[in-house]
Design a protein around this nucleic acid. Structure first.
Ligand SMILES: NC(=O)c1ccc[n+]([C@@H]2O[C@H](COP(=O)([O-])OP(=O)(O)OC[C@H]3O[C@@H](n4cnc5c(N)ncnc54)[C@H](O)[C@@H]3O)[C@@H](O)[C@H]2O)c1
Ligand SMILES: NC(=O)c1ccc[n+]([C@@H]2O[C@H](COP(=O)([O-])OP(=O)(O)OC[C@H]3O[C@@H](n4cnc5c(N)ncnc54)[C@H](O)[C@@H]3O)[C@@H](O)[C@H]2O)c1
Lengths: 217, 217
DNA sequence: AACTTTTTGTGAATTTTGTAACAGTCGCGG
DNA sequence: CCGCGACTGTTACAAAATTCACAAAAAGTT
């Protein structure tokens, strides 16, 4: 029954880039912006921008453009980034440490509350001001604090086990930085950061470019 | 003129996941695999897997499946990951440090040779066994060592300037971990790691799921 | 040997995404 | 207050990706 397909994925993925640019424009004191300008800044076609912005429901005025404020508000509301959501992070290793210190998340309405790790040497310490707790504390705290989202950056082999623990603790959304494919129940959403996939695209594009060049010259 | 569109992007992005699973199957001593099994492991439909594998040119035999060895070889060759490529990293900060220590890159035929940073306190040190050099050394070394690829993880504001320096040094592919949209000439390929975009998808999917649930109950 | 099951490979249908075209609105400069 | 260029919003069209449908191959089963 559950036909939980989110539509217009590509558009949604581009929204944060618009948001970033819009905030930068606001800094510059700009109040109005056209899709032409946005497109130019983001190296896209203006029609793409127009179509993307359509899904937020924000409207502009012909001959003028959109109000910067409206767009920022509209995108944030569409993404649910206007209210900050608290999130837990599991795996305070190399990558986890970088994420814990990343200032940019506040732009996305994201607040990492605490980190969790299996390593007893790390438990009890603080990283970038965030406490590192033991895995046994996870379920209890998640429930008490009503945390629904979690970042997963443990080694790949541990990923599935940790994910199951998350699900059992009531987590509903897992942001997965590991290479593993998670098996989770229907009611949990998951999003994998596919670095390898991006690199694959880059590799193929470069090879293509070089080949083409050889042909051309 | 150059209509350098790489086709089947979604398929290419999935290939590394197959590769990972295939290597794991090889570990387990498996010699043959069907798209049915692969799909099950990666939570995809078997037809998706079949279509994706098609682009590598590897063929299987009906009723049996594909040889695991063949597929691994085929995918690696298609992606150009069979010969290791050397790459430079610029921005040895929080994220850069994590990347420098990441063992997984060798799976992708990627070898980070050296890091570069503007911070004089970092220059001259080593991170995870990789030397951190000053920015002034970049161009010269890139040419001498014939490096074509670079990882960009400096703060967003510095991204464009550093990218231009890379291009001037002959870099042909930039793996961009910053939020900035890079302006580079036609002959350079770029791939942005869009964390914010992934989070956007997760946010919307979760909101959707919750809304749907409310309706359903 | 005939039949069943599993699975590949391909061409075609369907859905989704990206592009183009254009009517209609707005503000501006005369 | 009229015409012009800039811009939106919508409808129509094209391309790409996904999904379906099925013939044919291999291996096992009766
Ligand atoms: N480092 C990178 O740059 C990078 C890049 C891409 C992907 N990744 C992925 O991110 C993940 C983490 O990478 P990393 O480099 O930070 O590894 P890491 O080894 O530095 O950190 C892993 C952390 O997880 C903890 N851990 C291990 N098992 C656990 C468990 N069962 N429960 C809770 N905590 C546990 C460890 O104590 C450690 O602190 C890996 O899956 C890796 O593939 C890392
Ligand atoms: N930390 C994260 O988890 C994270 C997550 C997503 C994206 N990012 C992005 O990655 C980038 C780096 O993030 P970070 O957290 O590592 O930042 P950071 O401040 O820890 O590191 C930036 C590094 O770049 C160096 N640098 C600054 N200007 C430079 C220049 N002009 N030339 C060469 N080096 C220069 C600095 O000395 C520093 O070492 C940022 O663009 C950030 O948005 C980071």
């Amino acid at each position: 029954m559950a036909k939980d397909k989110v539509q217009k994925l590509p558009s949604i993925k581009r929204l944060p880039a618009y948001l970033r640019e819009l905030k930068s424009l606001r800094e510059e004191g700009r109040q109005v912006v056209s899709t032409t300008l946005l497109a130019q800044r983001l190296r896209l076609e203006s029609i793409v921008v127009r179509k993307d912005l359509e899904i937020t429901g924000v409207t502009g005025s012909p001959g003028v453009g959109y109000k910067v404020e409206d767009l920022i508000g509209g995108i944030e509301e569409f993404l649910g980034w206007n209210n900050t959501s608290d999130i837990f992070l599991v795996g305070a290793g190399a990558l986890g440490t970088a994420l814990l210190g990343y200032k940019g998340f506040s732009e996305y309405g994201l607040n990492i509350v605490a980190a969790f790790d299996a390593d007893p040497n790390k438990v009890g310490t603080e990283i970038h001001g965030k406490p590192v707790l033991g895995m046994d504390a996870f379920a209890n705290l998640a429930e008490r604090m009503k945390i629904h989202m979690a970042i997963l950056c443990v080694p790949c082999d541990a990923a599935q086990a940790v994910a199951e623990l998350m699900v059992a603790a009531g987590i509903r959304a897992i942001w997965n930085f590991t290479g593993a494919t998670l098996n989770v129940p229907e009611h949990v959403v998951r999003q994998r950061v596919n670095l390898a996939g991006d690199l694959a695209v880059l590799s193929v594009a470069l090879a293509e470019k070089l080949k083409e060049e050889q042909r051309g010259s």
